[in-house]
């Protein structure tokens, strides 16, 4: 997501944190966050092109083989030649493990940077819910699909990261992110309340299940993001109004699952 998407995801998550989790998060946040997790949920994007963090760039997405509308961890994430789990689901597993290890007790031999672990985890849980962050390798998750968003020339990935949300803010939420967040929170309690417990739980009571999040995203990418968005097409109300509910639900799911 862009700045707005990460802010919304983390703001929603903050509303669902337990007392223990809120206390731990506030202890881990950098001073610059002033106690607000949402204020630093884009940090991973800011450092992505910084020399010292260049290794983190591949952790924001999954490269799905072209036209495969499913996700397979070993096929899409595990780089067996380098024994690396170089994708967003691997990143979520890794930083969940780092925070759990630290919580389980001060293990001297491991000196993880838990503040970075929290910020990367919060960012990646958001990203894996953006369908085109699990998009096709061939079109770079929609980055190389040039389209028009109303009159503006852009690419399909940017439409999903940013343009749909910005158009929604202008059209429905008085350009006020808090109003959009409140609307999504109302949706969670009024319309999706039965789904929340399903969203929250993972098989075998595991802490996170990013493979499920990624499978949902590639399916949505094929059904909604890529559909009716061929290179050179102009996307307007027809596309915007039918895709906005998908975006808002993915932001809600990302927030509830992060919490």
């Amino acid at each position: 997501w862009g700045k707005e998407g990460h802010y919304v995801t983390c703001k929603i998550a903050q509303g669902y944190l337990s007392e223990d989790a809120l206390f731990a998060v506030k202890q881990l946040l950098p001073d610059s966050a002033e106690g607000d997790l949402a204020a630093v949920c884009s940090w991973a994007d800011e450092v992505r092109f910084n020399y010292h963090y260049r290794w983190s760039s591949a952790l924001h997405y999954v490269d799905t083989p072209d036209f495969k509308c499913n996700y397979e961890y070993c096929r899409d994430c595990h780089d067996s030649s380098k024994h690396k789990h170089r994708c967003v689901t691997g990143g979520i597993y890794n930083y969940t493990m780092q925070l759990k290890t630290a919580e389980a007790g001060p293990s001297s031999e491991l000196n993880y940077n838990l503040t970075e672990a929290l910020l990367f985890l919060s960012h990646f849980v958001g990203d894996v819910h953006q369908p085109l962050h699990v998009g096709f390798l061939g079109d770079l998750g929609g980055n190389s699909i040039t389209v028009r968003w109303y009159r503006r020339k852009t690419n399909l990935h940017h439409v999903w990261d940013t343009m749909i949300i910005q158009s929604a803010l202008k059209t429905f939420y008085d350009s006020n992110l808090s109003i959009m967040i409140q609307a999504i929170q109302r949706n969670i309690t009024d319309n999706w309340s039965n789904d929340v417990s399903i969203w929250e739980h993972c098989a075998h009571n595991s802490t996170a299940c990013p493979d499920r999040y990624a499978s949902e995203s590639i399916s949505l990418a094929c059904k909604f993001a890529y559909k009716n968005a061929t290179p050179g097409s102009t996307l307007e109300d027809g596309y915007f109004l039918s895709r906005l509910p998908i975006v808002e639900k993915r932001l809600a799911q990302g927030g509830v699952r992060l919490a």
Binding site: Y16, A21, K100, E103, A259
Partner: peptide, 16 residues
């Protein structure tokens, strides 16, 4: 759910 799960474990150990 992820952060609540991670940071709840400490309380559980304390209670155990």
């Amino acid at each position: 759910a992820i952060l609540n799960h991670i940071f709840a474990s400490k309380t559980r150990i304390a209670q155990a």
